[in-house]
Design a protein around this nucleic acid. Sequence first.
DNA 1: TTTTCCAAAATTATAGATAATTTTTTATCC
DNA 2: GGATAAAAAATTATCTATAATTTTGGAAAA
Lengths: 223, 223
Amino acid sequence: MAKEPEDTIASRISRVLADRIVRGELPAGFRLRQDHIAEEFGASHVPVREAFRRLEAQGLAISEPRRGVRVASFDIKEVREVAEMRAALEVLALRHAAKHLTPAILDAAEEATREGDAAADVHAWEEANRRFHRLILAPCNMSRLLASIDDLHAASARFLFSAWRSGWEKRTDHDHRAILVALRQGRAEEAAGILERHVQWIGRAPKSTRKGGESAEAFAIVG
Amino acid sequence: MAKEPEDTIASRISRVLADRIVRGELPAGFRLRQDHIAEEFGASHVPVREAFRRLEAQGLAISEPRRGVRVASFDIKEVREVAEMRAALEVLALRHAAKHLTPAILDAAEEATREGDAAADVHAWEEANRRFHRLILAPCNMSRLLASIDDLHAASARFLFSAWRSGWEKRTDHDHRAILVALRQGRAEEAAGILERHVQWIGRAPKSTRKGGESAEAFAIVG
DNA sequence: TTTTCCAAAATTATAGATAATTTTTTATCC
DNA sequence: GGATAAAAAATTATCTATAATTTTGGAAAA
């Protein structure tokens, strides 16, 4: 039979909850009550508690002993922190991945870029964006590094979805294309430099902000 | 009352087990049986399972559904991976911490270096080394980043302890001193550069290896 | 009306019990 | 003797039950 990625109730619960947190269905500070969640999944609270420990480690929930678990809050400062960590780690991953990249992988990454440009909503864009990054980084073959980057992507996506509650307009991702051009021509360091600046944009207000200022839409959409 | 750092049985178990794994008391591949551990701690297996999830997230254990949890294996490739991640993230942390460093902090870091140089065994050295890094990085005030670095330090220490089963000889840590000199003189970028090279040495065989070759002692002690 | 205290309800953390799976042992066959 | 299969033991994953803690919702006092 087609075996699921993971087989335990705890891992299923943690995946579903992580997804809800990232998508903003569960808002920051929301209290995660173990019995309620257990009931929803038709399980007892034992696997729920295990799922909590996982979410905690991913930075998506915080637990206070005897006082329960809440969806982690995040402010713009933490978004910047995640962006800088991503920049540092993705550059590292790309430097190692570069020598293993094949034309087929780069074609798939270009396809992901096109799908991102054509995305009809923010969720579709995020999925394509994440796929792009994963495609060009996975060949580094460093599983711990990739796992860390995945967790950081989740945090980034959470910010993206929370900031982008309103309409979506298509645009062209020039950074992704420039990265691919550099990689195709074997200029890995240049690609890494573009990637670094690209990811660093997350959580920065774009240059031409109107006086409006504080609005959530005032942040650049990048990733 | 003086409250413990964390208060649940699960967190206590995970801390103790993490320590044993890092120190090599529990060898790679060793099977962690939940009932045995529960019995040792006078607890039930529920908190033990929660501790397992934490160790898994830290990369110290791996869990296969229905087949139990084992101490994570690690080879030289993973040690290098951890070293590179540490280099990338510690440089990032230091760049942010630099502007918040005070003479008092740098004095404490120098004291940690002296204690490392005077250390009588590998455990004392590791403790002092870790303290040095933590002191100069903590002022970056980025909790997620610091937590990641802590986990990577644990992985590094595990390698250090496994490689250094034999005698210990004192030596002087010139890198730490050079970093402190640069920081005292406000040359943060230079300090970051030294730190990067310093951490990158982990898991690299030293230049002047005798033909002996594969022996565990053939790796540089740095960190 | 606001504050303070106390009881009721909800919730967490843990223990003990059970079904299902994996591992080990033992017996059997070639 | 070594391989194989069945039976026994050990172990995992989960559920149900219970003690302890925290939160909630008033009632009494200021």
